[in-house]
Computed example of a mutant assay.
Amino acid sequence: MDEWVIWVILAVVLGVAELFTFTAALGLLGAAALLTAATAALGLPVPLQLLFFAAASAAGLLVVRPLALRHVKQPQLQRFGVEALVGKPAYTVSEVTGREGRIRVGGEEWSARAYDETLVIPAGATVDIIEIEGATALVYPRE
């Protein structure tokens, strides 16, 4: 069997293994094996093929993989939904106690409770949203 066929088989095996691991390491090794298959098809001797495979693998694992992982692990730049309300200022539409109340934030009216259950926040006061529980905002008065 020709050497290039063995390299292609190795590339396919590594590619399939990558589908089960999602580490990018086996995929890069498979790509290196595929490139080595091309060098084998050109007629390079086996020791040079192994040297080329080692160099291509090292380049992939040391250069390409960290770049790929950096793009995959980027933090979420913007919060969405109710997570975006936490930390925002609002003002009270009605008196807010530890049991009930209403606030207006971003043009929407929300049910609210005081974060500290002993507080009574008068209507018209500015508050900060500390947490969202279901459809109720837990607020604390702004000093």
Rank of each mutant, 00 (worst) to 15 (best):
R65G: 08
T92P: 07
T39V: 14
A114V: 11
V86I: 15
L62T: 14
V46E: 02
L48W: 15
L119N: 07
W110Q: 03
L19K: 06
L28N: 10
G27W: 01
V120Q: 06
V64T: 09
I9M: 04
Y140E: 11
G107W: 03
V5G: 05
A114R: 04
G124A: 01
G81K: 11
G60S: 05
E100V: 02
I132S: 12
T118D: 11
R142L: 11
G98D: 09
V82H: 12
I103T: 11
P89C: 03
L69F: 06
Y115R: 02
G134I: 01
T118A: 14
G30Y: 10
A58M: 02
F52G: 06
L50S: 02
W110L: 03
E100K: 04
G106A: 11
V105M: 15
A123M: 03
Y115F: 12
S111Q: 09
V8E: 00
A32M: 08
A112T: 12
Q76K: 13
E3G: 05
A17T: 13
E133I: 12
Y91C: 13
A123C: 04
A68V: 15
V8Y: 00
G107E: 04
L69T: 07
A11E: 05
F80W: 00
A31Y: 04
A32G: 09
L85T: 14
T97Y: 08
V13P: 05
F22K: 05
P75S: 10
L138C: 09
D128K: 14
R142P: 00
W110E: 02
F20L: 15
L50F: 13
G98H: 04
A32W: 11
I103G: 04
L14S: 05
P89E: 15
S94H: 10
E95N: 01
K73V: 13
L14M: 10
G106Q: 10
D2T: 12
L119G: 03
P66T: 12
V63T: 13
A38W: 08
L26E: 00
F52S: 07
V96E: 02
Q78W: 08
A112D: 05
S111M: 03
F20E: 04
D128W: 14
I121A: 09
A125S: 14
I103S: 03
G98F: 01
E117L: 13
L50V: 15
E133P: 10
A137M: 05
R102A: 12
R113M: 08
H71N: 13
L28V: 14
